[in-house]
Design a protein around this nucleic acid. Structure first.
Lengths: 145, 145
DNA sequence: TATTGTTATACTCTATAACTATA
DNA sequence: TATAGTTATAGAGTATAACAATA
């Protein structure tokens, strides 16, 4: 039986950590493949998603929101900026801070990338019913906060 | 409303791919931290788990089962072999193949590592009820096959 | 003193190609 | 010819420390 929480012997099909890592890796790889035409990778896509959702974030806020190291944020914004998808605007009150803004081209690219991402997510979640997909998202959201 | 499968606009709290990648990364990082005393990383742990579950696998089978590239399997088995946790036994009928066997020391290490892993998994899944944990494992298993 | 962004760096992970020894 | 394991290597991801400008 065992006390609650101390499982007897983990197996490949019962270990939540392994299954999470495996599913996460699969999601990243398929998204990377889907975004190849745009010369973007999944990290870039999540940045566009964040900036699209809440424009005018500082790089620090962006990194915190996405769980990305500040030094990695620099490189990502460099890429997106070179592609013309985001701008670094000065913060009106703090000259250290730079606010990341989505450009019109960035909004277009994100809209198109969203189509591809949705199709790949549909593929990934194909074995699940719509209700189960909602359940999965809810459970994942609750363990990643 | 929109057709099923084509979601309107993905957000950071609704995108299954992002949430999966985030949760997977979190699981890997906490397991790595938990295994530090054993000088093992999460990949080593999953190999031990696989070999413990189904002893005598070839390296190719191991890689396939775990979704690890054959060249990476070599390095992992090198590490575990140097630590005395697994052996490479000759295949009785095919001299190309090497069967990976768990040693007694490997079984002990895995048993102890399992304790740490269970505690970290318990931490990770703390926000979920036991029933929800089961649901999560079931959903993940079905999308990673 | 502390914080934002940046650079440099290192280590892990992932993936590919080429080689060897066997089949 | 094809396969199992191996080596070498390169690219991406992750993390740390140190620095300049600013607060």
């Amino acid at each position: 039986m065992g006390k609650p929480g101390t499982s007897e012997r983990p197996t490949l099909t019962s270990d939540a950590g392994f299954l999470l890592a495996r599913a996460g890796g699969k999601a990243i790889r398929s998204l990377n493949r889907a975004l190849e035409p745009y010369r973007l990778r999944s990290r870039h896509y999540t940045v566009l998603m964040a900036v699209s959702e809440r424009g005018g974030l500082s790089q620090r806020e962006l990194g915190e929101l996405l769980g990305i190291d500040p030094s990695a944020v620099v490189a990502l914004i460099d890429d997106l900026s070179a592609a013309g998808f985001v701008r670094r605007d000065p913060h009106p009150e703090d000259r250290r801070t730079r606010l990341v803004m989505l450009t019109d081209a960035g909004r277009d690219a994100f809209t198109q990338a969203t189509e591809l991402a949705a199709r790949m997510e549909d593929d990934l979640l194909a074995p699940l019913t719509p209700e189960e997909r909602g359940t999965l998202v809810d459970l994942l959201r609750r363990i990643t906060r």
